[in-house]
């Protein structure tokens, strides 16, 4: 079933909508939630909650890009749950990727600064659009989906060292780009 047909089911308030969403996006959602929570049962619950959230948001919303729409929901719910869990002790991929991103910033302590996150997000989109597609996708797999280096290496059929090297270079480039755009990092 294609995305617009699934959305149509949500609009009709058919319970098959959730079933079809699970068939099509269940694996992606579970993987993303587990990357953040590192706990299969928590991840499963988050994914179920995400389906319910989608159910409540549609028909109020008509997502143009359903996979990104549901991924955002899963990610946000998982991050909220992480705040209440002890997952930090388990070092989920989310926290590991956050550690790596510290390369791009000089300090965690800059409360006096306020950033327009939306604008910064747009800038990062521009930066990524100008990168080689392989580098861009590896970067997003690591820092948006929080996939492990091992799993990225497997999906892209390359060695883990190569993935780490691409991530390292892209982070450096991002830092340079943001500095050039006037962000004091």
């Amino acid at each position: 079933m294609n995305d617009n047909e699934i959305i149509a089911l949500y609009w009709k308030r058919s319970e098959n909508a959730i079933k079809e969403t699970e068939i099509k996006y269940g694996k992606l959602c579970t993987r993303l939630a587990n990357n953040i929570l590192n706990n299969p049962s928590d991840a499963e619950e988050c994914v179920s909650d995400s389906y319910l959230t989608v159910w409540n948001l549609i028909p109020e919303e008509r997502p143009q890009n359903f996979s990104a729409f549901i991924s955002r929901i899963v990610k946000n719910l998982s991050l909220k749950r992480l705040e209440y869990s002890t997952a930090k002790k388990r070092k989920p991929e989310f926290l590991a990727s956050l550690d790596e991103l510290r390369d791009c910033v000089s300090s965690d302590d800059s409360p006096e600064e306020s950033f327009d996150v939306s604008l910064l997000g747009n800038l990062i989109s521009v930066f990524l659009e100008n990168q080689d597609s392989l580098h861009r996708n590896i970067f997003l797999r690591r820092y948006w989906y929080y996939d492990s280096v091992k799993s990225i290496a497997s999906d892209f059929q390359m060695k883990e060292e190569k993935v780490s090297s691409i991530l390292f270079k892209t982070r450096k480039k991002l830092k340079k780009f943001l500095e050039k755009e006037g962000y004091s990092i």
């Binding site: 990104a68 990610k75 997000g121 820092y143």
Partner: peptide, 11 residues
Amino acid sequence: AINMVDDDLIS
């Protein structure tokens, strides 16, 4: 901010 990147890139 990375969370805010374009939907098309995410997909």
